[in-house]
C-alpha cells in the first residue's frame, strides 16, 4: 500500500444542510452563495473574524449523515489564518464527535505547517512558520481540507479567523467563501501511470516579426488516476461514482488525504469527471481502470 491515499468525495451534503451564521454577510453575497456553484460567486462577510469572534457557519441536517471529508473552496484567507471544524451528533451541537483541535487544544491553520527545514531558506517569507512561501501559496486557489475519521454527524460548525487577501495580494477586510463541501469519501492509492496535469491554456498569436504573443487565460488542472488492481468493493464504488456524478457534477479530490498539505494544495480541489468508466479485466476477479478529471474553475 502506498503511503499516500488519494481521496474522492462525490456527494456533497453541504447544500442540503440548513445553514445559519451569527456573522454579518454582504447583502449581495449572502451565505447561501457558498452552497451552490459557480465557484466565482462567493459568499462575503462584512468583516474579518478574530480568534475571539470568528466567522461562524453552522449547518444542521434533518438526520445523521456519514462524514469523512469536509472542505471550503476558494477562500481568500491567508495560509496562517485559523480554521476549526467541529462535528456534532445532535442538532443542538452539544455532542462533539470531531474537532480539528489537537489533543492540546491547539487550532490548525488554513494551511498546516510542513516544518521541513530543508525547504526553508533563511530570510524567506515562511522562515518562522514553516508553511509555504507566501508567493507560492498565492499561485493556487485557497481551499481548506479536513479529512475526518468516519463519523455519523447531525450538525457541523466552521469557525474562521485571521487575515485575508484581495485578489492582488493586498490585505482584505472581509472573508470570501466560494463553495462548501462536506460528505463521505472514497480513499485509495493511485497506481503507476497516474498523472496530474496543468494546462495553462491561453491564446498564442504568432507575430509577423517573429516570436509570439500570448493572451493568458484561466489555466486548469486535470487528473488521470490509474488503478491497476481494482478489487470488488472499490471497483463497485468507482462505478457507482461514475453513475452518480456523470460529467457535470462536482467531486472533491485530495491526492494525499491531508497527509501532505502542500501536495493537497497543488492538486486538491473541485473536479468534474471526463470520459467513460471502463473496467478492463486482467484476472477473473481483478480489473484495471483509469478515471480522468478536469478542474472546475468557474
Amino acid at each position: 500500500m502506498s503511503a499516500w491515499q488519494a481521496l474522492l468525495s462525490d456527494t456533497n451534503l453541504f447544500p442540503a444542510a440548513t445553514l445559519s451564521s451569527p456573522t454579518a454577510w454582504s447583502a449581495l453575497a449572502p451565505l447561501s452563495l457558498c452552497q451552490t456553484l459557480p465557484l466565482s460567486a462567493r459568499a462575503a462577510t462584512l468583516a474579518l473574524g478574530t480568534a475571539e469572534a470568528p466567522v461562524i457557519i453552522e449547518g444542521v441536517w434533518s438526520d445523521r449523515q456519514f462524514v469523512a471529508y469536509a472542505g471550503l473552496f476558494q477562500l481568500n484567507l491567508r495560509q496562517s489564518a485559523g480554521v476549526r471544524l467541529e462535528l456534532f451528533g445532535d442538532a443542538a451541537m452539544t455532542e462533539t464527535l470531531f474537532d480539528t483541535r489537537d489533543g492540546a487544544g491547539a487550532d490548525r491553520a488554513v494551511f498546516p505547517p510542513l516544518l521541513d527545514p530543508a525547504t526553508i531558506r533563511f530570510g524567506a517569507s515562511h522562515q518562522f512558520r514553516g508553511d509555504l512561501p507566501a508567493e507560492d501559496f498565492a499561485l493556487y486557489p485557497t481551499h481548506v481540507h479536513v479529512v475526518v475519521p468516519l463519523v455519523r454527524a447531525r450538525a457541523f460548525r466552521w469557525s474562521l479567523w485571521g487575515e485575508a487577501d484581495q485578489a492582488d495580494g493586498s490585505a482584505a477586510g472581509h472573508v470570501e467563501i466560494g463553495h462548501g463541501w462536506i460528505g463521505d469519501s472514497l480513499q485509495f492509492a493511485r497506481s503507476t501511470g497516474s498523472a496530474d496535469t496543468y494546462d495553462p491554456r491561453g491564446v498564442i498569436v504568432e507575430m509577423a516579426g517573429g516570436g509570439a504573443i500570448v493572451e493568458p487565460e484561466a489555466g486548469g488542472r486535470a487528473l488521470s488516476i490509474v488503478r491497476d488492481v481494482l478489487e470488488r468493493p472499490l471497483r463497485d464504488a468507482v462505478t457507482d461514482m461514475a453513475r452518480r456524478v456523470g460529467q457535470h457534477r462536482p467531486v472533491a479530490y485530495l491526492p494525499t488525504s491531508g497527509a501532505d498539505p502542500a501536495e493537497d494544495l497543488r492538486w486538491g480541489g473541485l473536479y468534474q469527471r471526463r470520459g467513460t468508466q471502463s473496467n478492463t479485466w486482467s484476472y477473473p476477479t481483478i480489473a484495471q481502470s483509469t478515471i480522468a478529471f478536469e478542474e472546475i474553475v468557474t
Binding site: 453575497a29 465557484l39 472581509h174 484561466a218 468557474t298
Partner: peptide
C-alpha cells in the same frame, strides 16, 4: 461575465 467569473470587492 465570462468564466472563470468575477465578483466585485467590498
Amino acid at each position: 461575465c465570462t468564466t472563470p467569473g468575477y465578483q466585485s470587492r467590498p
